[in-house]
Computed example of a mutant assay.
Amino acid sequence: MSFPAPPSGPGPAADRPVPADVTTAYQLWCAVLGLAIVSLLASLVDMWNRRGELVATMTDMVEQEALEGITTEQLESAVPVLLVITGAIGLVVVGLLYLVVRQLLRAKNWARMLLTLLGVFMSLTTLPTVFGVGVGDGGASWVLGMVGILQAVATVGAIVLMHRGEANRFFLHLPEDKPGQ
């Protein structure tokens, strides 16, 4: 079975202007990534403030696994390392996502599809926060909840803008509509 060739429109994306919807979607995704950094920082602060609980949990795990020779002092000294590793991984993920977001301006449809899937997942995982389910206590939990809701709103806006008419023509390399035709 053969498929028809896609319509031949203007040349590569470099020759075409980026539609306003795509530019705004890019800006919204950048805001989402900025909020992800705020969320990461709030999570790290919350982990630091609750390090006693973390050490207690790790102590229980050590006892259950029958690992001998690990002391509470060693576990306490591991907490800063754990925080640094968590922060580094978080920043790497945000950096990789930014590389994908940049591809929107280059008319890469794969980036639009990947961001749509990630955005739908992110928005759906925020729904319990909207209804107050699983929200902890304390300032960090409040910040994380608000940031999550703001991220979901920006994500949905970016997804809608990435799939509007002009944006579709841009990503699918279709010819532009000309008035009067």
Results as ranks from 00 to 15, higher is better:
Leu104Gln: 09
Thr57Pro: 02
Val147Pro: 01
Val133Glu: 07
Leu96Asn: 12
Gly145Val: 00
Pro128His: 10
Val160Asn: 11
Met47Ile: 07
Pro12Val: 10
Ser2Tyr: 06
Met1Gln: 08
Val79Pro: 01
Asp137Gly: 12
Ala152Lys: 02
Val135Asp: 00
Val101Tyr: 02
Phe3Thr: 13
Val79Trp: 04
Gln64Tyr: 06
Trp48Ile: 01
Val93Glu: 11
Glu68Cys: 06
Ala14Arg: 09
Lys178Met: 12
Met146Val: 15
Ala14Tyr: 04
Ile70Cys: 08
Ala56Trp: 10
Leu54Gln: 06
Gly90Cys: 00
Leu115Glu: 15
Gly87Met: 09
Trp110Pro: 04
Glu176Ala: 08
Val38Gln: 02
Leu124Ile: 14
Met146Asp: 02
Met146Phe: 15
Met122Ser: 13
Ala78Trp: 01
Leu150Gly: 12
Gly180Ala: 09
Val45Pro: 01
Gly34Trp: 12
Arg102Pro: 13
Gly145Phe: 02
Leu33Glu: 01
Ile85Arg: 05
Ala154His: 00
Gly132Glu: 10
Trp110Leu: 13
Leu54Ile: 08
Leu104Val: 11
Val94Met: 05
Ala66Ser: 15
Asp46Lys: 07
Trp48Asn: 09
Ser141Lys: 03
His163Arg: 07
Ala154Lys: 00
Val81Lys: 10
Leu115Ala: 11
Leu172Gln: 07
Phe121Thr: 12
Gly138Met: 13
Ala78Ile: 01
Val81Gln: 08
Trp29Gln: 04
His163Glu: 04
Pro175Cys: 01
Lys178Asn: 05
Leu115Lys: 03
Val100Asn: 10
Leu91Lys: 08
Phe3His: 11
His163Gly: 02
Leu150Tyr: 00
Met47Leu: 13
Arg112Leu: 14
Pro7Gln: 07
Leu96Gly: 14
Leu75Tyr: 11
Trp110His: 15
Leu44Phe: 03
Leu144Gly: 04
Gly134Phe: 10
Ala25Asp: 06
Leu127Phe: 13
Ala20Gly: 08
Phe171Thr: 01
Asp137Leu: 09
Ile70Gln: 06
Ile70Ala: 13
Tyr26Leu: 00
Val101Ser: 02
Ala56Gly: 12
Gly90Tyr: 06
Val92Ala: 11
Glu63Arg: 13
Val100Pro: 13
Tyr98Gln: 11
Tyr26Pro: 08
Ala154Val: 09
Val143Pro: 10
Gln103Arg: 14
Val32Leu: 00
Gln74His: 08
Thr126Asp: 04
Gly134Thr: 06
Thr129Leu: 10
Val81Gly: 14
Pro6Tyr: 12
Leu118His: 14
Val153Arg: 01
Leu35Trp: 02
Leu97Asn: 04
Arg102Cys: 15
Asp137Pro: 10
Gly95Lys: 12
Gly34Ala: 15
